[in-house]
């Protein structure tokens, strides 16, 4: 297990190196002068002067070759110093630490929404195969998997904020603020999970041990909740872990729409501002989250499946 975790951490390191290098390369391949962009972001178009641009170029080290800029950044990052935002001048680390909880909260809330939908839908769909409910669940899943989340977000706003006036569009801090973004992200995830849980349940319900359980006289509900679900859920967990990655992707757009003050919105804003100190740090944090989530999922998997659990012990 330890061996496995350390391998994961090495992978994390490589991923961080990879994506940050790619960010640097993209930054420098882009047309336009980063120093000018930053100056524009800081002082606005009207106050832009050549001296200021030059000043920024030198003070931010943008005159050095790319690889020096990168190693410079890396050396500092390894010491926990992610620099200052090129636009606001605030320390990046602080900015990110302030923003991270919002994204994690949104991701968690979305995951809860998706499981609240997918678990019952998947189970009912499998238990009542080819019934009306099954068709409804499957159609819903197909629809959900093809639904652009930014469109869904706008439709939800249209219905619940504009027409009914029940929920606010923007805001942060109260439960009612998280509902629309979490539902937007959660339903997309639920679509995929429902299909998975359904097919996994169907496979499990065919197993011999289910017949054994039925022959004991257990009720169908008991068989599904106690004997089938745990078996069916184990393979689903891995995929849900992967799906969480897509959830992080989704936060980028959904946070922008709902003005949710998380990492996703921060990343988008900093990309348009070309604030690459912030971009690098956001990208790095997303990589850390993604790898850690997958690590957690794998550990959960081991915990749930006695076959693996005991192999590791023995």
């Amino acid at each position: 297990m330890l061996n496995y975790i350390s391998r994961r951490l090495v992978l994390l390191l490589i991923v961080v190196l990879g994506v940050t290098i790619m960010t640097f390369v993209s930054m420098n391949l882009a047309p336009g002068d980063p120093a000018e962009m930053i100056a524009m972001a800081r002082y606005g178009l009207e106050n832009l002067t050549a001296e200021e641009v030059e000043h920024i170029r030198i003070s931010e080290g943008l005159d050095a070759p790319v690889w020096i800029q990168y190693t410079h950044w890396l050396a500092h990052a390894l010491r926990g110093d992610f620099g200052r935002s090129l636009v606001t001048g605030d320390p990046v680390l602080q900015e990110i630490i302030v923003r991270a909880p919002a994204t994690l909260m949104l991701a968690l809330a979305s995951l809860i929404v998706s499981l609240l939908i997918a678990i019952p839908a998947g189970i009912i769909s499998a238990a009542k195969q080819n019934s009306l409910l099954d068709y409804l669940a499957r159609s819903g899943a197909l629809l959900g998997a093809s639904m652009p989340n930014f469109w869904l977000a706008l439709l939800l706003i249209l219905l619940f904020s504009v027409t009914l006036g029940w929920l606010p569009v923007f805001g942060y801090g109260e439960l009612r603020h998280i509902i629309l973004p979490a539902v937007t992200l959660g339903t997309g995830l639920a679509a995929v999970s429902t299909r998975l849980i359904r097919s996994s349940m169907l496979e499990v319900l065919e197993q011999d041990y289910i017949t054994t359980a039925r022959a004991k006289g257990l009720r169908e509900g008991n068989i599904i909740s106690r004997h089938a679900f745990k078996n069916a859920f184990i393979p689903v967990i891995t995929v849900i872990g992967l799906q969480l990655g897509h959830l992080l992707e989704g936060t980028v757009i959904v946070e922008s729409i709902f003005g949710w003050p998380g990492l996703g919105k921060l990343l988008v804003d900093s990309i348009f501002a070309r604030d690459y100190a912030l971009i690098q740090a956001c990208v790095l944090l997303f990589a850390v989250f993604f790898v850690l989530i997958n690590l957690l999922v794998d550990i959960l998997y081991v915990y749930l499946d006695p076959r693996i659990r005991y192999e590791k012990k023995g």
């Binding site: 197993q207 011999d208 041990y209 017949t211 004997h227 078996n231 749930l304 499946d305 006695p306």
Partner: peptide, 8 residues
């Protein structure tokens, strides 16, 4: 195959 793998 007739015993449930995840229950003791």
């Amino acid at each position: 195959t007739s015993l449930n793998p995840v229950l003791s």
